[in-house]
């Protein structure tokens, strides 16, 4: 599904180049659950942004579903977001002015899903996440865990093939974090959604089937996890 070839990302600082990513090569198949780990400044977030087509590599090639992302224009990227990619953020990034229901509806509207289907899809997902009673609340009326549930629901509602999560549990208490990770695993196992997450937590990383350890912009090593997480 994803093919990274010699991805580099650097910024010119004066005469020297400051490298954020160097010679990243990776292949991620459909149905995988990959965790990216590494210390602060190792380039995890940049890599995730490049994967999410929010940032462009300075060098190298990125192939997504057999298409060269480096050739995409803004419109094609927008199509990717509509059809294939869902984002989950550490800070949730719900739209404050919209209710839970409206936050969930937004990607469907961009996707031009007809109104009847929108209603049923939202009803389904609210049901699945046990949030039916909360649908008319605004984000600031929810707890962090609940907000992140909405965030994930919003990422899922467009039925993406790939979910990119940037420290999805970074702001959460551990019981809530665990709940979120369980959802990810279910999504991956039962719905076959490919998931790539950036995380600091070894425990969370082990929910996936593979860990990429980044250091100073390079992939230091790759770790394969048998049977996923500790349970």
């Amino acid at each position: 599904m994803i093919e990274l070839k010699n991805i580099e990302r650097y910024y010119p600082t004066g005469a020297v180049k400051t490298y954020v990513l160097r010679y990243i090569n990776a292949h991620i198949a459909e149905g995988e659950f990959v965790s990216i780990m590494g210390p602060s400044g190792s380039g995890k977030s940049t890599l995730l942004h490049i994967l999410g087509m929010l940032d462009e590599p300075t060098d190298g090639e990125y192939w997504f579903l057999g298409e060269g992302v480096h050739k995409f224009n803004e419109r094609r990227r927008t199509e990717m977001y509509r059809e294939y990619i869902g984002f989950v953020f550490q800070a949730y990034h719900l739209i404050d002015d919209l209710t839970v229901y409206e936050n969930l509806e937004t990607p469907l509207m961009y996707k031009k899903v007809p109104s009847g289907e929108r209603k049923s899809r939202i009803a389904d997902i609210l049901d699945r996440f046990n949030m039916v009673a909360k649908k008319d609340l605004f984000p600031n009326q929810l707890s962090g865990g609940q907000q992140q549930l909405v965030g994930i629901a919003r990422a899922l509602i467009g039925r993406p093939k790939l979910i990119l999560a940037d420290e999805p549990t970074g702001n959460l208490q551990s019981p809530q974090a665990k709940e979120i990770m369980e959802i990810f695993r279910t999504l991956n196992k039962e719905d076959g959604v490919t998931i790539i997450q950036v995380t600091h937590s070894e425990e969370n990383a082990r929910y996936g089937n593979r860990i990429l350890h980044l250091k100073d912009g390079r992939v230091e090593n790759e770790e394969l996890i048998k049977n996923g997480a500790s349970s």
Binding site: L54, T78, L94, I95, P107, Y110
Partner: peptide, 16 residues
């Protein structure tokens, strides 16, 4: 700005 960023990742186009 945050709203713009989120909307773009949700598939909101420039024109939308």
């Amino acid at each position: 700005s945050k709203e713009v960023g989120v909307r773009k990742t949700l598939g909101g186009s420039h024109s939308a």
